[in-house]
Nucleic acid binder design. Structure first.
Lengths: 186, 186
DNA sequence: ACCGTTAAAGCAAAGATATTGCATTAAGAC
DNA sequence: GTCTTAATGCAATATCTTTGCTTTAACGGT
């Protein structure tokens, strides 16, 4: 066996799981600002050096965990029409991202400095969801839409407002985005 | 004198200046990943505890410095027409933000955890610039535009792509955004 | 099922960073 | 000028991070 290889099963996976769980628990219990690597390591039952070697530092670990938590649990709701699906999905997206937890996850994901690119993972989740909606619409015989345009017109403004201007995107505001998207693309 | 008051002149300002300068120098010299508070303190000629007390921690200091650096140096170029002004401004904005330095500054600004809200400052700079363009357009007798819409349609997608999908917004892509904005708002 | 190889984890010491109480300095008000 | 006190300096302490070495346990081959 000449090449390096990455072990995946067994202990390695158990430890990753334990560290992720410990991090999430602590995020709830003590709050993000107070968390430290030794804390997480202790609760996960590993030594700090293991965490440092696998994740590098706290921000990278938080980014990894946050990206995981932003992974959607299931498919977006099926409301029977593309307009309904999009509205439901985008409103829920806005609500989740604007919540304190959502904001925190977003910031953690973006703080990533390494090359793992937690942010890209999150972006992919969103694209996947939109693709699901598009597939459904086509199956129903409805007209499609451009996923790129949906990200530009619907998703990006929501994220920008949450991240930069620190306000909540109100349901009305999101409704306005949806109206604009409909006007442009459908 | 009963109330607390914040000192602004003299030594306090000198130290803030020195720390900011030291941070920027080090960002250029050794790179963001290697910077530490003691390093900055030494180069600024202050003790680390001063930095910790004033800024809290490294991320907050970096956010403060980054927000400062994102402050525009002057007014946006005047090309003689609103379409030209907007095009020039947005293209330049995209280019600056997509550069390695721009990305880094953006991330630092967003990492802010405290209540100073460096991100909001940056957002305000952008709004100010757009307001300048709007004022000029009106002075010329041109039709105006909605600043909110400009942020949603032009600025937000650029930021989203830089932050999340890690690609450069190409000039063509930005041109597309501008075309969409024109179609919608003008 | 056992053995050899080696990636990954544990351990512990050394190094670096962060925090804090107390002394000192210098802005601002009078 | 003098008083008050916010802000800094200093230094000891606590905490976190890094690193060399040892030990454990996946994985492949037999």
């Amino acid at each position: 066996m000449a090449r390096e290889m990455i072990r995946q099963g067994g202990r390695s996976a158990r430890i990753q799981e334990a560290v992720h769980r410990a991090t999430q628990t602590l995020l709830n219990d003590v709050g993000r600002a107070e968390i430290t690597v030794p804390m997480i390591a202790e609760r996960a039952g590993v030594t700090p050096s293991t965490v440092y070697r696998r994740w590098g530092d706290l921000p990278q670990l938080l980014a990894d965990v946050a990206a995981d938590r932003l992974r959607p649990v299931g498919e977006p709701d099926d409301t029977g029409s593309l307009a309904g699906d999009l509205g439901a999905f985008v409103q829920q997206y806005a609500e989740e991202m604007a919540s304190p937890v959502g904001r925190s996850l977003m910031r953690d994901v973006l703080a990533e400095t390494g090359s793992d690119l937690a942010a890209a993972r999150c972006c992919a989740y969103t694209t996947d969801h939109l693709q699901t909606l598009l597939r459904r619409a086509r199956a129903r015989g409805e007209a499609g839409f451009s996923i790129e345009a949906a990200i530009d017109i619907l998703i990006a403004p929501i994220c920008y407002r949450i991240l930069f201007s620190n306000g909540d995107p109100s349901p009305d505001y999101v409704q306005g985005l949806l109206a604009r998207f409909t006007r442009l693309e459908m």
